[in-house]
Design a protein around this nucleic acid. Sequence first.
DNA 1: ACCTACACGTGATGC
DNA 2: TGCATCACGTGTAGG
Lengths: 228, 228
Amino acid sequence: MDFVEDDYSTYWETRMFEQKEELDSWGWDENLYGYYDSSSPDGSSSSATAKNIVSERNRRKKLNDRLFALRAVVPNISKMDKASIIKDAIGYIQELHDDERRIQAEIEELESGRQNTPDIFDLERMNTSFTGMKKKRSDQITPIEVLELRVSEVGERTSIVSITCSKKTDTMVKLCEVFESLQLKIITANITAFSGRLLKTVFVEADDTEKAQLKRKIETAIASLDIH
Amino acid sequence: MDFVEDDYSTYWETRMFEQKEELDSWGWDENLYGYYDSSSPDGSSSSATAKNIVSERNRRKKLNDRLFALRAVVPNISKMDKASIIKDAIGYIQELHDDERRIQAEIEELESGRQNTPDIFDLERMNTSFTGMKKKRSDQITPIEVLELRVSEVGERTSIVSITCSKKTDTMVKLCEVFESLQLKIITANITAFSGRLLKTVFVEADDTEKAQLKRKIETAIASLDIH
DNA sequence: ACCTACACGTGATGC
DNA sequence: TGCATCACGTGTAGG
């Protein structure tokens, strides 16, 4: 009564055969181990354990099937290891999260961009779009420690973002990644390091609604960096 | 002494603590079960099985941790069941796939909408959006294309590094990484993007010997980036 | 010989 | 009472 065996051909299939054979040909004898059933008046307990065994077997099979299916929907799996499958799946989901976030941002940009006349800032905006991808190597993170974040306006459609952090390893890179992920219309950016501090100044083109959200967006982007 | 599972109600992460305690406080005695080591002249076999036990314990723990982490990145988990976690993860990935496809279609539509005068901006956009995503999945790298690299001296201990590249995906981040990896004494740095070009200017503090090697170090660092 | 990764049977726990 | 899920120790096969 076991539903479906889809393919499986190239994986843990060895198990399948064993299992099938067992299920069919096992003269299941619980006295195999010389057990006398404990704590039960009749022999019902032995059949109980027998049921438990087959039940547990099904559970394991289901789990493996699921794991197998999970592997199927995740591309670029290198190791067939159970733990690795799950790990890759996690990484892939996070990857998709990032993609979705970026693409969504791009749509917003495109939609708002259609109303305005496309200007030179479109170039910059597009150039800075899909860049912050992936962080490959070390899982060791050095969170960005923000000392000051100031957003001020100069002119009608231009804002200056000024952020000061303590200079640690990779802070500069991460800072760049943050600003790229925000899909801002960056006119020019400047980073200065001195006495353990890192000061980044960014000229951004932003309309009123963008201005209003600018500071908050930066803050949350930096905060979300610290999570991973 | 039966370290009974208290609660469990909130889930199995409680187990982690128990397990840790076990590892620390177990006076691990393989004779607990009254085993005499079978089929071995000395007692080495028993220690082997003991190692196997602790190893297996670690494996289970790792698997559960991964599963726990997987659950963390998947929203709307109803059942805490192991199999259900994997199932939900699969469903969620497929969901994200659908979203991604739908959104990409949306972008295409938007872009075709502004197809009048296909100018450099549109070209830039195409390059950085779709191809950028695919490339990144397949781990394709976009090497830094250096157009000009100039190192000049200003003053006794200060040099100016001026580098111009074509602006592609991740160029800015990679450029930052390169300079980060060189461990230079950077006084100030400026990055400006303009018409598909990326211009980075760095003020570096360097003595004579460092000056002499500066340009070469930068070149090799960029070149070595393209290897991977 | 060691180490990894696995499936298995078993008892426990909670519904 | 059964039924589901789990952690555990064990034997084993492949690298």
